[in-house]
Computed example of a mutant assay.
Amino acid sequence: MEQLQWLAVVRHGQSTGNVTAQDAETGGAEEIDIPERDVDVPLSDLGREQAEAVGAFLAKQPDDERPGIAIVSPYLRARRTAELALAGTGIRAVVDERLRDRELGILDLLTAYGVQQRLPGEARRRARLGKFYYRPPGGESWADVLLRLRALLRELREDHPDGRVVLFGHEAIVLLVRYLAEGLSEAELMAVAHDTAVANCSISSWRRQDGELRPELFNSVEHLHRDGTPPTKQEDVDAKVD
């Protein structure tokens, strides 16, 4: 089977929704007051700085080490991150809807407290099924997201054999790409998710060795601090309860 030479995934920069969601969670609110559709949530000022720091990291890589193509979530915060990070690099960017964030259906814009208060039955069902298989009404489980990611990665292997590809997506995308790249079990993925808050504009990557993709970086933010960008002020979550 054809294999990529190098695969990386970048979480989008801090968004205005991240800030609002964090304030709602810590403030004990039931609902996250975000006026835009999730697809239209923009980057914050810090998020733009983080994206530019990713660009500085890419610019420092030797020509034969830079990605040949970028695949980008259609959500504004991811597209803007990619635009800022890829500016001047000559790297072609392609938007692919399969990299969109996990859809939360009726849980969208509710805090964890809000789900408990307004939808206690769903809170119990989620606790029983676990994050991997729980599908909120109108939304997706992590297993659902994996189906679209499997299809995308298969196409990338076929279309770019020996290629170097960078993805721009969301927190769940980072975790689930790791699940696929490293062949994790559900339990191993849940342990990683429990212990890791995927940072905005972090870089996770895998390099081919002996015919297989091997871990290189995970949730790395060294490039943000090295370039003088302030560290993320929170263990940011996307503008949704997930």
Rank of each mutant, 00 (worst) to 15 (best):
106 I>Q: 07
108 D>A: 08
129 L>T: 06
121 G>Y: 10
146 L>A: 05
120 P>D: 15
145 V>M: 12
131 K>V: 15
108 D>V: 06
160 H>F: 12
208 R>G: 09
122 E>V: 03
167 L>C: 05
198 V>F: 05
152 L>Q: 01
191 A>P: 00
95 V>K: 02
140 E>D: 14
206 W>E: 06
138 G>T: 07
134 Y>A: 05
118 R>A: 15
201 C>R: 02
93 A>H: 11
176 L>H: 00
181 A>T: 04
146 L>R: 11
188 E>D: 05
109 L>P: 07
190 M>E: 10
123 A>R: 04
70 A>Y: 04
179 Y>A: 00
137 P>W: 03
95 V>C: 12
153 L>F: 14
184 L>Q: 00
148 R>E: 10
124 R>V: 14
133 Y>F: 10
132 F>V: 07
179 Y>E: 00
196 T>I: 07
161 P>L: 01
186 E>T: 08
111 T>P: 08
134 Y>D: 02
191 A>W: 01
176 L>M: 03
179 Y>S: 01
177 V>T: 13
182 E>N: 01
76 L>A: 13
147 L>E: 12
86 L>I: 11
209 Q>M: 13
136 P>T: 09
147 L>F: 08
142 W>C: 02
117 Q>I: 15
78 A>E: 05
122 E>A: 01
150 R>L: 08
187 A>W: 04
177 V>M: 02
88 G>Q: 10
75 Y>A: 06
123 A>W: 04
194 H>S: 14
119 L>S: 09
79 R>T: 15
143 A>E: 05
201 C>G: 08
202 S>F: 06
182 E>Y: 02
93 A>R: 14
203 I>F: 13
121 G>F: 15
88 G>H: 07
164 R>D: 06
136 P>S: 06
161 P>S: 03
